[in-house]
Design a protein around this nucleic acid. Structure first.
Lengths: 290, 290
DNA sequence: ACAGCGTACCGTACAAAGTACGAATGGCGC
DNA sequence: GCGCCATTCGTACTTTGTACGGTACGCTGT
């Protein structure tokens, strides 16, 4: 981990935007293979298990050989991030074009609610999509919703992304392509440039935050071998004793009404997303009215 | 870092809820002193510079002495988190009571906009507080806004908080008190228990996310010795060459309109926060109407 | 005041990490 | 075939968390 920052190194940019690669005659290594090995390792065991030695081992080479191709671990991680963003769909931004027509095909229900988010409707379903109210929704809502879900899925596939520290955008083609697509989703809907940027970042943040929360729950559950419920139950006596003289009226009332499984499966994600979209919509409407 | 999880250890709970401490006769150590030393160190040099040896050195004891008081580094960090949450104000949740009266004192402009967020109004100010539209705002808005700003300030003082991996709530009295206060802010305003929880978490996430973004910008700027603007400017030729054949119409249009300083100072934070509050408000109104 | 004891202290050591250094080695151009 | 030089990587140094077990300090009982 020698020194802190080499990340704005032009070398890193060249790596991010590298083209086709010839495998090395001697070992068959390429930057791409190294990056992919790193991704596999991180997928399986997490970012903290990612070490240069282990990546090398997986590739059947010595640890130091990697340094011929990649300046260091930091840079490897940046390249991994760029690489996995290539998994995101790249088809054009759907019909989420400009003015937000009344009857968009994608509108009306939470789309692509399938795989990673299956079966997560909590007690009252209407907290979710919000598509079941009478009014029609502007087209950009569906676009942003889909965007959020694509990132959500990405985070499910590559949880280590949640641990990568943000740095100055060291952006490769995949990230760049996606950003263009994402920002285009809010183009021409009545926001200025600042607001467009802030909206997209807001949703990025929200997805990552919700994914982080979900992962924390999941991880702790399996680490302790206890489900969240069991864990709380186990702790109750200790807790009650400690809290004897304090009182937390709202917390306990709310806590009793909740049970972990409901928060488990993306409720935070959906609720927050729809509230954000509501907020953007309200902002645009207000702007347009005033 | 022996094994992964000891965090639901009852010992940790005892430490979190420990009462008064007698300083050790021999070294003068207490858990509190160790925790405070850790906080100082992390404040100055970041979480990745926090090592047991360095904490011990700062306290004038051997590294292994710490282990008499604290089970390990992980636990120390948890204790640090609990400790700094004691800095948050603990006065009652202001006037942000129940139904949201028409004329609340706290309403009408972004309150406590002072220190950490000074002078951050971007091009068009109305993207911010939103308090300048004719209508009055419900009282809970001011409460949540203030809450967000308190956490924002906390993150400015203790940036390392942004690097602490979330775990199952290993909660001490400070965190517990604050959670009670926070959740009370949304009590009785027309949300069910799930929504109350999700709302608070949504804002937690947002504050952390925005703080993380800001820190990334700041850190990279000082690491490279270049401001964000200079950095981009420096990179332009490389960039243009790389992007020659691709085109990013929206990105470049938006990018040109933006300049870093505007995003620098909490614009993302404010814009996102107000949008979230708008979204909650819209949700409540819709619920009430339907 | 002193003996003795238990616990607080910590020196040493080990594994695993990133990566600097420089020797070896093997494929490619002639 | 020959020689060159980039590629490969063994070794080593530093820093980390923390296990182990010895040492010595201060409190307690006389």
């Amino acid at each position: 981990m020698a020194d802190k920052r080499r990340l704005d190194d032009p070398q890193l940019w060249r790596l991010l935007w590298r083209g086709e690669e010839q495998p090395s005659a001697r070992s068959g290594l390429t930057v791409g293979r190294i990056v992919r090995a790193g991704i596999e390792l991180a997928d399986e065991a997490g970012l903290e298990a990612l070490s240069m030695r282990r990546v090398a081992e997986r590739l059947g080479v010595g640890a130091m050989s990697l340094y011929t191709y990649v300046p260091g671990k930091q840079e490897l991680v940046v390249l991994m991030v760029e690489e996995v963003h290539g998994e995101l769909p790249t088809d054009p931004p759907a019909a989420a074009g400009a003015t937000g027509g009344a009857t968009d095909v994608l509108v009306g229900d939470a789309p692509a609610d399938g795989d990673a988010l299956a079966g997560d409707a909590p007690a009252d379903g209407d907290a979710l999509a919000g598509g079941d109210r009478g009014e029609s929704q502007p087209g950009w809502r569906a676009g942003l919703r889909r965007m959020a879900e694509e990132y959500w899925d990405l985070y499910q596939r590559h949880e280590w992304l949640l641990d990568v520290p943000l740095t100055r955008p060291a952006t490769g083609p995949n990230l760049m392509d996606r950003y263009e697509r994402d920002i285009a989703l809010v183009d021409g809907i009545g926001l200025d440039e600042f607001e467009m940027t802030a909206t997209i970042e807001l949703i990025y943040e929200h997805v990552a935050g919700a994914a982080r929360r979900l992962r924390a729950i999941r991880r702790d559950a399996e680490a302790s071998g206890l489900s969240d419920e069991e864990w709380w139950y186990r702790l109750l006596p200790t807790l009650n004793q400690l809290l004897a003289d304090r009182n937390y009226p709202v917390t306990s009332r709310v806590g009793e009404a909740l049970s972990a499984p409901h928060l488990d499966t993306g409720y935070l994600f959906h609720f927050g997303l729809e509230r954000i979209l509501d907020g953007i919509e309200a902002h645009i409407a207000r702007r347009r009215a005033g």
